[in-house]
Simulated scan of single mutants.
Amino acid sequence: MTRTRREILGTGGGLAAFLSLFPLAAWASAVVDIRMQGSGDGSHVWFDPIGILIKPGQTVRWINLDSGNSHTTTAYNPANFHRPRRMPEAAKPWDSDYLLPSESFSVTFTEQGVYDYYCIPHEHAGMVGRIVVGEPQAHEWTELAGANGGLPEEALRAFPAVEDIMAKEIVRRHDYQQQGEP
């Protein structure tokens, strides 16, 4: 079969259009790191960043950089120790188990919405975080306020506002640091 010049150029144009989408696809698949950290004397522990905005399909990797503590990343979900649901209902909950220093754990987020998580041994110290996937509707995150039962006050105070995450894309710990913390 002989192809005309127009057919060949048309195919090449389609291929060029497809390849122009590649950087966007590569960005969406980029891994986002969240560091698990603590002060030298162990008196303060935290996730950094504490809030992030990602695209559906992106992977988040938690890395324990705290040489003095083990940590977990655990989704607020009834499947995890009967905790209140603070994530999309269709999403699969996660629990990393204890991560020793230098260990990591990853989750790929496919469902759009707001995900709250915590560190099992340090939740009472406010070691929590929030991930926003895609562009959830306001009702999807205002419903989280109804799932506060049983959460420590320190944890509730530590969550960054969804609006701040949507506006800044990354919210660092120092943006929400309590007075007197390092």
Rank of each mutant, 00 (worst) to 15 (best):
I8G: 02
A28W: 03
Q58H: 00
E181C: 00
W94D: 09
T4Y: 03
A26H: 01
A125R: 13
D48K: 03
G180L: 01
G113R: 06
L9H: 04
C119F: 01
V60K: 01
T59R: 09
G146N: 15
I34V: 13
S20L: 13
Y115C: 07
M36R: 00
L21D: 05
V45R: 15
A167W: 00
E181A: 04
I170E: 13
M166A: 11
I120L: 13
V107M: 11
A91N: 06
G68F: 00
K92M: 12
K92E: 15
Y118K: 06
C119P: 02
V132L: 07
Y76C: 10
P152N: 11
E143F: 04
N64F: 09
D33N: 10
V132T: 07
S43C: 02
D66M: 05
Y117W: 15
L9C: 00
A28M: 06
L65G: 02
I50G: 02
P88S: 13
A145W: 10
H139E: 14
N77E: 10
S39W: 05
D95P: 01
A161S: 14
L24T: 09
V132Y: 09
R3I: 05
Y76A: 14
P160W: 13
H44V: 12
H174P: 00
M127R: 01
F109C: 02
S43E: 07
G180K: 01
A91Y: 12
V107T: 11
V162E: 09
A155K: 02
E135Q: 06
G126R: 04
G146A: 12
Q112I: 14
F18P: 00
W141C: 09
V31I: 12
R35D: 15
D95R: 07
G149S: 08
A155M: 04
V32K: 07
V107L: 07
S20Y: 08
P136G: 08
P136I: 06
V171T: 04
S104H: 11
E123Q: 13
D175A: 11
E169W: 06
Y76Q: 10
P84F: 08
V60C: 01
Y117N: 14
Q179A: 03
D41T: 05
M1W: 14
E135Y: 03
E7W: 02
R86V: 07
T72M: 11
E163Q: 13
P160R: 08
L151C: 00
Y118H: 07
H139N: 09
G13I: 13
G38F: 03
L65I: 00
L21E: 08
D164C: 06
R86I: 10
I52A: 06
H82I: 05
I52W: 06
D41L: 03
T4R: 02
V107A: 08
T4S: 14
G150V: 09
T72G: 07
A138W: 03
G42I: 05
F105S: 05
T142V: 14
S104C: 04
Q178I: 07
V60A: 01
G14L: 14
M166E: 14
A26P: 00
A147Q: 15
R5Y: 13
R83M: 15
V31P: 00
G14Q: 05
Q137F: 03
V45M: 11
D97L: 11
Y117S: 15
Q58K: 06
V171N: 01
N69W: 11
L151P: 01
L144F: 08
Q179S: 08
